[in-house]
Design a protein around this nucleic acid. Structure first.
Lengths: 194, 194
DNA sequence: CATTCACACTAGCGCTTGCTTGGTTGAATG
DNA sequence: CATTCAACCAAGCAAGCGCTAGTGTGAATG
């Protein structure tokens, strides 16, 4: 069994697992289905993962780590104005959500299937990500770009963005960036949409 | 087996099932757990419901029907201004979401576990509800209360509201009505929060 | 050339699952 | 008082579940 997530084989298996978990749900995805999708027999699966739970944890960990990296990167390379940072954060959020879609859908829907230890570990990652949001929201509040309670605003914004996985059509006319900008415009006083 | 949802016994069983589905998730809730919670044996369950799927459908149907009733009622009894109707709709949404919480959490999380027929039937109910929202949003757009695309705005608003089931604490200081008003204020140009 | 190692296989154990079957109640109905 | 009927129970079947044990590879390592 591999301990690190780093093994390239394991990373590929994790990606496949994410896809199946989205299609069928975690509980309905059997180890035999996972194995078949991976082109191996069900027993061989446990060479890469201790148990089924660990596959779920690997999927969610991957997704959340990617989200953190992309968000930090976006914030680092953008303008330092509150508006620019707000736009960058919203765009980064949708970018991860919609490109790394499978992993995030799993994280949103199957979080409760994690056992206590995995949940504790992954909570830290998620908290780090949410802290980024609250930071950016704080700056927007300070500049009067948006109004309201910092906690509430960040929850509302993340809710609106996360909900997109339910209805957004990548084949449609709107790009994720446009979507993000529209949301920011909606909660921002100065912007206008003719 | 009862065909109608109307049997009082069945309604009570549905309520209990909703609670268990929230605690454990649909797939992890066994018919034996359901039966025990209901104070009967597992076999007796199938006198009330054709199969496990039908219990899930009953839970979601109940919740969605209630949401429709409450929303229509709220719209009927409120002022006819776009602002009043927007507030009423948001408040109604959170009221159902948080009082009939179990059923709605199940609807949000376990929708995909429904089979094709049940999903088709319940989709109509849900569409009727969402149509109410788009109507109210349309009026708000027409009066210049909010700006943007009708489709996008309604999705963003519903996302922000539905997301509350993940973090809202009924024991906390904020009432659902305050929450709803805060969200409306956030997307509304004229309001201000000192 | 011997050893190790990652990776895969076969076979199946022990348990739980949703659901069925056939029968028993106790109250309401004609 | 015979009949009906919703509601329940006891017992269990067939299928599927996660996971384990033991073994076989071919490539890399010493």
């Amino acid at each position: 069994m591999n301990v690190m997530n780093a093994s390239p084989r394991r990373k590929e298996l994790t990606r496949l697992a994410a896809q199946l978990f989205v299609q069928e749900g975690f509980d309905r995805t059997t180890v035999r289905m996972l194995a078949q999708e991976m082109g191996i027999k069900s027993g061989s699966l446990f060479h890469h993962f201790r148990d089924k739970q660990e596959i779920l944890a690997a999927v969610i960990e991957e997704g959340t780590e990617n989200a953190l990296i992309i968000a930090r990167d976006a914030l680092a390379r953008c303008d330092s104005s509150a508006s620019a940072r707000l736009h960058a954060m919203a765009r980064a959020h949708l970018e991860t959500l919609l490109t790394d879609r499978n992993a995030h859908v799993v994280a949103l829907y199957e979080w409760r299937r994690l056992d206590t230890e995995a949940r504790a570990h992954l909570s830290h990652l998620r908290d780090a990500y949410e802290a980024l949001w609250e930071e950016v929201i704080d700056e927007a509040l300070a500049e009067g770009l948006v109004h309201g309670d910092r906690f509430l605003v960040s929850r509302f914004v993340m809710g609106a963005l996360n909900w997109t996985v339910r209805w957004y059509d990548p084949e449609g006319t709107r790009t994720p960036d446009e979507l993000a900008d529209e949301l920011v415009a909606m909660i921002t006083r100065s912007a206008s949409t003719p």
